Amino acid sequence: MDVVTFGETMVLFTPESTGPLRYAGTFEKKIGGAESNLVIALARLGHQVGWISRLGDDEFGHYVRNFIRGEGVDTSQVVLDGQYPTAVFFKERIIGQDPKIYYYRRGSAASCMVPGDVDENYIAQAKYLHITGITPALSATCKDAVFHAMELARRNKLTVVFDPNIRFKLWSREEAGPALMEIASRCDMVLPGLDEGEIMTGKTTPEEIAADFLQRGVQVVVIKLGERGAFYATASQSEYVKGFPVNHIVDTVGAGDGFAAGFLSGLLRGWSYRKAVELGNRIGAYALTVAGDVEGYPFWHQVAPDQRKEILR
């Protein structure tokens, strides 16, 4: 197993029309969740991945599990919970703007995850544990599960990768900053957006934000800068890596998860940090071109021609 992650995936309803949801009459049903986005993208890039979660033992829960499993992700650790439902959310499409998101996830099956849902033997198979800042915001037991998973990863010598993925509909800025920094300080790699880095550290530039994380024991910091690309830093090197231009952006949701998947894919292939960040930028750019969370992620045969020179070195 290359990467294991855990968190909530919901059923996503996207209206076929643009404008306020109150006027929408027909919807398309898909799935959405940062953690499952990541492992689906990695599976398409040729990696062995696993996703841990709870879903309602309902039609939506079976749909989510079957979709993710159909993408080549191991779902053997997913619990179907007969007591709590699978969460849903809606996108409101406004031309020329990022979509507005409406969540209906309170009391969901995933919010009832507990440390016991994370099995040490399963975690120990992987090279990387990926976590996001969404899961600890779902409930106190989910937060406990995150810290338990990090402890299991540390015990079994996994590299722990943290994407803050701040969701202010789940907790306030004042709650999120300190809680996420506590998690980040126990991780090997941190992948914040620029605004997330500012919230967590109080710094304003990529260099200052990265330095703050490195001083807390993080080994690698990659700050996502949108169309500008990304900035990465370790104790001995740092560099800006330009992004890939996208002529027509259709949907921004899922781009950050695509970046994380590309970055980890590069590392799993033994590439340098710079080359891994370049791949992250490329996969993130793919995600921008298609509506939906995962629909734009490419397969490795689509990406490989662009990486041929690197492969031959």
Rank of each mutant, 00 (worst) to 15 (best):
A235R: 10
T205V: 07
E278S: 05
W271C: 12
Y240F: 15
G262K: 00
V246S: 02
L267M: 14
V277N: 03
L268A: 10
V277I: 08
Q237I: 11
V294Q: 14
E295Q: 12
M200L: 14
L214A: 05
E208V: 05
V241D: 04
V290Y: 01
R216W: 12
V218A: 01
F213G: 01
G270V: 03
R274H: 15
V294L: 00
L264Y: 07
E278A: 06
Q237E: 13
E278H: 08
G254F: 01
G202C: 06
S265H: 12
A291Q: 15
R269E: 15
Y232G: 02
A210K: 03
D293Y: 07
A285N: 13
I249L: 07
Q237D: 14
A276S: 15
I199T: 11
Y232C: 12
A260E: 01
A287F: 02
V218W: 00
A261C: 07
A233L: 04
K275N: 14
A233P: 02
T205C: 11
E239A: 11
V253P: 00
E196F: 09
F259C: 06
L225N: 01
G296F: 06
E196Y: 03
G262N: 06
A261T: 09
G243S: 02
A235V: 08
G226N: 02
S236I: 12
E239D: 00
L288M: 11
R282C: 14
L279N: 07
Q237G: 07
Y273N: 11
S238G: 12
L225V: 14
V222H: 10
V222Q: 04
N247Y: 15
R228D: 14
R269N: 10
Q237R: 06
P206C: 10
E198H: 09
E196L: 03
E208R: 01
S238R: 12
V290H: 14
G229P: 04
G284Y: 00
G284V: 08
K275V: 13
Y273D: 14
Q215V: 08
R282W: 14
A210L: 06
G217I: 15
L267H: 09
I223V: 15
A233N: 04
A255S: 15
L288C: 08
A210D: 04
N281L: 08
R269L: 07
D195W: 12
V253L: 11
L268G: 02
G262C: 09
Y273F: 11
K242Q: 09
M200I: 15
Y273M: 15
E208I: 13
P206L: 05
F263K: 03
F231R: 04
G280K: 07
V222M: 09
T205K: 10
V253F: 00
P245M: 06
S265M: 11
R274I: 09
G266W: 07
A261K: 04
I249K: 03
V221A: 08
E208N: 09
V222W: 08
T289R: 12
N281A: 05
W271M: 15
S238K: 13
T204P: 01
E198L: 05
T201W: 01
Y232E: 00
F213W: 06
A211D: 15
T201E: 05
S238I: 02
G254P: 10
I209V: 15
L225R: 03
G266T: 08
K242P: 08
T204V: 13
D195E: 14
R228P: 11
E239R: 10
T201H: 10
I223P: 08
G284R: 01
A230V: 06
K242D: 09
R274N: 09
A210Y: 05
E208H: 05
